[in-house]
């Protein structure tokens, strides 16, 4: 049951057709893993906290650096040199103290991935390294959990959703190996990571509430330099080592 305080906070979004109190209750009972929680994941987490997702599990290691501040909006400039996850949990709690935020000061790795994915209904992949992304993908496929896939570069971004079952590809269908040219640090604006982060949050909300149509089997790409949008059908590889036959 929603409390009067929750109804007051979520009133505007409950007016969205298909949401109502029942949809808000689904959000309250839902759980989402966000990894990592930087420029991209930070906006996913912020929007999902605002929307009243009942439990956020956030995996993000390391201490805040000055070069994080242009895009990682859950950080504050007085926190440089201190653990990012502490700032993330604090900021989310300030926005919405009615939800549970579980901050893990680690990135996804072989030892924690099964437990992290096992705690949630939906995963949002925001990690910068393909090693982490492919690991998360393998585990979400194994556990049959949906994964929202968000990525960015320069003024471009793309987003898709990998759904359990045979209807959509998984990340390893698209990128079966770690791309040799990808680097941990790359050009991007915070407005780009923020845009795709908000879109990733909306995908998670759609998955939880059943409202709208997730991007299963469709890759949505945008170049914010000229706002060119491209929607492409993507498919499963029969020989995929993760989800294939």
């Amino acid at each position: 049951m929603l409390t009067p305080a929750e109804k007051a906070i979520y009133e505007w979004q409950m007016w969205v057709p298909g949401i109502g109190e029942a949809g808000q209750q689904k959000l309250k009972e839902s759980s989402v893993l966000i990894t990592r929680c930087g420029g991209l994941g930070g906006l996913v987490a912020y929007e999902l906290a605002a929307a009243g997702v009942g439990k956020l599990v956030i995996a993000h290691a390391g201490n805040l650096k000055p070069s994080d501040l242009h895009r990682q909006l859950l950080m504050t400039s007085d926190w440089v040199g201190k653990p990012r996850i502490d700032s993330i949990v604090r900021r989310l709690g300030e926005l919405n103290p009615l939800i549970e935020v579980l901050g893990i000061p680690e990135n996804v790795n072989n030892d924690n991935v099964a437990d992290l994915v096992g705690q949630v209904d939906v995963v949002v992949d925001c990690a910068p390294l393909f090693e982490e992304r492919l690991l998360l993908n393998r585990e979400t496929v194994r556990q049959g959990k949906p994964m929202v896939e968000c990525a960015m570069y320069e003024l471009q971004f793309h987003i898709t959703t990998f759904l359990p079952g045979p209807e959509t590809p998984c990340l390893a269908c698209l990128h079966p190996e770690e791309p040799p040219s990808w680097k941990r640090q790359f050009p991007v604006f915070g407005a780009v990571s923020g845009t795709v982060g908000c879109m990733g949050a909306m995908e998670a909300i759609k998955l939880v509430t059943g409202v709208g149509e997730p991007l299963g089997g469709r890759l949505l790409s945008m170049d914010m330099r000229d706002f060119k949008v491209m929607e492409s059908l993507i498919h499963r590889r029969n020989d995929c080592v993760v989800c294939g036959n």
Partner: peptide
């Protein structure tokens, strides 16, 4: 043809 190289988050 459209060619796309992998991108990620951060």
């Amino acid at each position: 043809l459209t060619l796309m190289s992998p991108i990620a988050g951060g």
